[in-house]
């Protein structure tokens, strides 16, 4: 399964998660299954917003997929989405946001489903199965 020469599904993927282990697993798993050439792990949603905003006129450098956690200190996933909506079209049109959370709360799921920027709502942990589901979105 681990074939270094395999073509990648995506060029760049951003992982926003305050949990260091989860970020590590995500990076490892994505790399292992050649899901993306590059992984940009970010600890804070605030940092993520800053980066995305900075890259708004550099289409090539914008991530194609953003894996977003919900429960994070400083700024939660939903708070991030509110700010994200204010970013230039260049960003919001290119990026696909997938919510990746441990939450089994139906309310969270419903809020997420209603948000136009959320493409998927998936539960942790991130594994091969999860990646397969994301790939279906493409």
């Amino acid at each position: 399964m681990t074939d270094a020469n395999k073509t990648h599904a995506y060029k760049r993927i951003m992982v926003i998660d305050d949990n260091q282990i989860d970020r590590y697993i995500a990076e490892k798993t994505i790399k292992k299954y050649h899901f993306s050439e590059e992984v940009v792990p970010l600890e804070s949603a605030v940092d993520a917003l800053e980066q995305l905003s900075a890259l708004s006129d550099k289409m090539e450098e914008l991530p194609e997929i953003i894996l977003l956690d919900i429960n994070m200190p400083e700024m939660s996933g939903f708070e991030f989405l509110e700010k994200y909506a204010e970013l230039p079209d260049t960003v919001t049109k290119k990026c696909i946001i997938v919510m990746l959370t441990t939450s089994l709360n139906e309310d969270d799921r419903m809020v997420a489903e209603k948000n136009p920027y959320i493409h998927q709502f998936l539960n942790k942990p991130l594994n091969e199965e999860t990646l397969k589901k994301i790939r279906l979105v493409k």
């Binding site: 399964m1 949990n19 282990i21 989860d22 697993i25 490892k28 798993t29 292992k32 429960n71 441990t102 939450s103 089994l104 539960n123 942790k124 942990p125 991130l126 594994n127 091969e128």
Partner: peptide, 19 residues
């Protein structure tokens, strides 16, 4: 959430280790 999050991380690590 706080209980599940570390569990979930744990499972993630285990599953990755298995591979």
């Amino acid at each position: 959430h706080d209980l599940r999050a570390p569990l979930s991380s744990m499972l993630g690590v285990i599953e990755f280790a298995e591979t």
